[in-house]
Design a protein around this nucleic acid. Structure first.
Lengths: 202, 202
DNA sequence: TACTTTCTGTACCAATAAGTACATAAATAT
DNA sequence: ATATTTATGTACTTATTGGTACAGAAAGTA
């Protein structure tokens, strides 16, 4: 181990605590006292370990998106686009059932902000775009495999699913019981184009 | 006219200016200097005329939702649920084509916030619920009229359309070109249940 | 004209924001 | 044991936040 007094807290655990605060209050709404008290460390320790508030946020954001990408990547391995989307949206429901901050960091951390946080806002927008791109890739594959009917726009479908996901983040953030979203998830899944032969009657 | 020096600015015009700022930067992100400079009035004038920042916001919010309700109410007069939804979502696109702050005040003004703004956040949530309720009412009527197939859940459908609307707010706020949303609006409209006899082939 | 009422602008206040200086504590390296 | 390196906690600084006191200006009323 390198010389010097060892850090008394676990860096990743601290980041996870910070992530919760950012998710709950947003980037700007999370004050330094909010963060330090949740992380259980003093202000100078935070600065020593993470640089500053924005760098801390970026690290939390990176961690969040790493888990997110991994989870989505797994889900998109489902055999059909339809099954993948269903699991994707049901996961959103599940992830918001456990106690803790509700919603999606990529959506709500800085949807709007003061001038100082414009950079953060843009970063979030690009993170969302990345996820939308994953969806699109999956749908293009489905199209190539004949899983989705020819003529379907992978881009439009990806946009729809992403849009529904963002909307779900707003809904759960607003306090809706996650399970209440089940029905609308089913309708969304049903909206995915399929070949006439696959359609089941109501 | 009542005695005393007359106000040198138009109250409603000032509120509209404030509304733009709140839409762009959110309730907390909009600083007093941001507001006063946009409104073209001094800080004490703002306080004299509107009370304080939160009251000003509430007035802006009320104005926004008044226009919103009116517009949605009109759109929902369309003969079918499907036509109503289509126009509703196309209006979202149109409203974000003109320059100015993008998105929806009810969604982004305080999706997350510091402790002081919890009240505002809740108010926004209830404003959204009110709009969702309008949708639901319309769908229940459609159900009663046989416009929507029996067995359709008006609540779930209202939830879906509202969720898509919120998601669209996130999308346009993130900088997407409004027209890019056209395709996904079409898919959303196509997702509205209809009788088998009405379905047109792809 | 004098008086009252209300608005406007400068200049301020207390509270809080993010960020840091510095002395001290705790570890490793020699 | 001593020196070195790094972490910690108290206490501070500067900038900005929302909010206000107060003097002066502009109107109506008598």
């Amino acid at each position: 181990m390198s010389a010097g007094r060892p850090r008394e807290f676990d860096t990743n655990a601290a980041i996870d605590k910070a992530l919760e605060v950012f998710k709950q209050k947003g980037y700007e709404g999370a004050s330094l006292p909010d963060l330090t008290s949740a992380m259980g460390i003093s202000r100078p320790s935070l600065y020593a370990a993470f640089g500053n508030k924005e760098e801390l946020f970026q690290k939390a954001l990176e961690r969040y998106n790493q888990k997110m990408s991994e989870s989505i990547g797994e889900v998109l391995n489902a055999p059909t686009a339809r099954a993948a989307v269903e699991q994707l949206l049901l996961n959103v429901i599940d992830n918001n059932k456990c106690k803790g901050a509700k919603g999606c960091l990529n959506v709500q951390a800085a949807l709007v902000c003061g001038d100082n946080a414009e950079g953060v806002k843009q970063e979030l927008s690009s993170r969302r775009a990345r996820i939308e791109w994953m969806l699109r890739q999956r749908f293009e594959r489905a199209l190539a495999e004949g899983d989705l009917p020819a003529g379907t726009s992978a881009a439009d479908l990806a946009c729809l699913i992403a849009t529904v996901m963002y909307g779900m983040a707003v809904q759960v953030n607003g306090g809706i019981a996650p399970d209440t979203l089940r029905g609308m998830v089913n309708m969304t899944v049903a909206a995915i184009p399929q070949h006439a032969s696959q359609k089941k009657s109501a």
